Each structure stands twice: as C-alpha cells, then as structure tokens.
Simulated scan of single mutants.
Amino acid sequence: MSQEYRTGREGDEFTYRGHTLEELQEMDVEEVVELLPARKRRSIERGLTVEQQKLLEKARTKDAEETANSPIRTHLRDMPILPEFVGLTFAVYNGQSFERVRVEPEMIGHYLGEFQLTRSSVEHGQAGIGATRSSKFVPLK
C-alpha cells in the first residue's frame, strides 16, 4: 500500500500526498489534478465531458446535509472523486438500480464506480426440476 494517505490513528488527521483535506478543498481543480494518479490526472486534463461538468456544478451547489436526504443521482461511474465531493452522497447507477455512495476523504483519487459494484455474487441452491440425473444427487451429510 502506498503512502498516499494516513488515517485511523488517534490524533492523526487525514492527509492526501502531504496535504490536509482543508488544503485540498481550498485548491483549484488544476492544483488538485497534479496530485492525482496518472489515469485520473489524464482523464481530467483531456477535459471533462459535458455530463461530468454538469455533475461537478451540481455537487458545488449542493451541501452535505441536502444530499443526505436526496442524493445526487448519476450514471457517471467514470467521474474522478475530487476533494469538493467529500461529505456528499451520490446515487450511482450499477446497471439495475441507483445505490447510495457517501464520499469519504479516503476516496479522493478514485472513480465513483469503484464503490458501487455492478455484479452480485451468485449463491446456487439445490438442483431443481429438469436437472440431469447426476446433478440431482444431494449428499445426506
């Protein structure tokens, strides 16, 4: 694990690459982009799409208490999480439904979609009607 941020210890406050959350939130987007990993930095430097710009504006106008009741709904799983998103709640689409994702400081530098899985685990039951003879066998023990 890289030394990007440290948190969890008593007395330590969150830092991302040597900057506190307050410092990150005061920075311009261009200054924050320089701190992000290469893939996220490149996607922002190439320019945000129109949809991503709308989401960024919507996030700037809403506050944390407002989004707790009605989260910001989005299909944009490829939106990089910026420091100004911390404390907001997003409803991210996973292919079937919108699931809530509350942005924490440790999520900075990741994509929104990383925190909402698109695939669920499969739990198989016993073989049913129409199964082959060999698959109907269920051990007693």
Rank of each mutant, 00 (worst) to 15 (best):
K58G: 00
E10H: 14
E57G: 15
E31F: 03
D63H: 14
E51R: 15
E30D: 14
T132R: 15
V103W: 01
R9T: 12
G130Q: 06
L56V: 03
V33R: 14
E114T: 02
A131P: 04
G113K: 09
R46C: 03
E106M: 06
E106L: 08
G47I: 07
Q53H: 09
S120M: 12
R42W: 09
E104F: 03
Q96F: 14
R39W: 11
G87D: 05
E104Y: 07
K62H: 15
E99S: 12
T15Q: 12
A38L: 14
D63V: 06
P105R: 08
R133W: 10
E99I: 05
E66V: 05
D63Y: 10
V103N: 01
P105M: 01
Q52N: 03
Q3Y: 08
R73M: 13
G128E: 06
L21K: 07
E65H: 13
T20R: 12
D28N: 11
E34W: 04
Q126N: 11
E45Y: 07
G18W: 12
H19I: 02
F14E: 04
E30C: 01
R100P: 01
D28S: 15
K136D: 01
K40S: 11
G87I: 06
F85H: 15
G95M: 07
E13G: 10
Y111V: 01
D12Q: 14
F85Y: 15
Y5W: 10
V32F: 01
R133D: 11
Q3E: 09
E13H: 14
L140I: 08
G95V: 07
A59T: 08
K136I: 03
I72H: 04
S134V: 11
D63I: 05
G95I: 07
P37T: 03
E51S: 08
G128R: 10
L56G: 00
F115M: 06
D12K: 15
V33F: 05
L82A: 05
E123V: 14
F85I: 07
D63G: 15
T74M: 01
E23G: 01
E23N: 03
S121K: 13
V122P: 04
L21T: 00
N94H: 08
I81M: 06
N69L: 13
S43A: 09
R9S: 13
E106H: 12
T15E: 07
D78P: 00
M79Q: 15
F14Y: 15
P37S: 03
H124P: 03
Y16M: 06
M79F: 15
Q116W: 01
S120I: 04
E99P: 02
G11A: 02
Q96M: 11
A38S: 13
G128F: 05
R39Y: 13
F137L: 11
T15Y: 10
G18R: 11
R46N: 14
A68G: 02
T49P: 00
Q96W: 13
R100W: 09
M27W: 04
E23H: 04
E30M: 08
R77D: 02
D28W: 00
A38G: 05
K54D: 05
E23A: 07
L55A: 02
V50I: 11
L36H: 09
R17A: 04
V32L: 02
E99Y: 10
L21I: 03
S135F: 12
E57T: 07
T132S: 15
E84Q: 14
G125H: 12
L48D: 02
F14K: 05
A131F: 11
L140A: 13
H19L: 11
V29S: 08
H75K: 14
H19D: 00
E104W: 05
E123C: 08
G11E: 03
